[in-house]
Amino acid sequence: TIDEIIKALEQAVKDNKPIQVGNYTVTSADEAEKLAKKLKKEY
């Protein structure tokens, strides 16, 4: 679900690790936030 994706992003940001979500690779908190907002609009 979208919530699980967002939790995974938040965890990756805390661990400061890049995370791959679908076609996106998120490497920073800023990118994670942008991706989360984008995904919320889509779903």
Rank of each mutant, 00 (worst) to 15 (best):
T25E: 08
K37W: 03
E4S: 10
K34Y: 10
K37Q: 15
K17G: 04
I19C: 10
P18Y: 04
A36P: 02
K17Y: 15
E31A: 04
E31N: 01
I2P: 05
K7Q: 10
Q20P: 03
V26K: 00
E4G: 05
Q20K: 15
Y24M: 10
T27N: 14
V26M: 03
A29S: 11
Y43H: 13
I5Y: 04
I5V: 09
D30V: 09
G22T: 02
L39F: 04
D3R: 08
I6N: 00
E4I: 04
I2D: 02
N23E: 15
D15W: 12
A32M: 06
E42D: 11
V21D: 01
Q20N: 12
K37F: 07
K17F: 15
D15N: 10
V21C: 12
K17H: 08
G22D: 06
L39R: 00
V21L: 12
T27H: 12
L39N: 06
G22S: 02
K40H: 10
A12H: 06
L39C: 09
K34L: 12
D15P: 02
E31T: 02
Y43L: 13
E33S: 06
Y43Q: 11
E10F: 12
V26T: 05
K14E: 07
A29Y: 04
D3A: 14
A32H: 00
K7R: 13
V13T: 06
K41N: 15
D3T: 05
E4P: 03
K7W: 13
T25C: 15
A32T: 01
Q20R: 14
V21I: 15
Y43I: 12
K41C: 15
A36Y: 15
E42W: 13
T1H: 09
Y24C: 14
V26I: 14
T1M: 12
I2T: 03
N23R: 07
A8V: 09
K34Q: 12
E33P: 00
I5T: 01
K34W: 13
V21H: 04
A29K: 07
D30Y: 11
D3Q: 13
E42C: 15
T25P: 06
S28K: 00
A36G: 03
E4T: 09
P18A: 08
L39V: 03
I6V: 04
K7C: 05
K17S: 08
L9T: 01
I6G: 00
D15Y: 10
A8L: 13
I5S: 01
N23H: 12
Q11Y: 04
T27Q: 12
Y43C: 13
N16W: 14
D30W: 14
K41S: 13
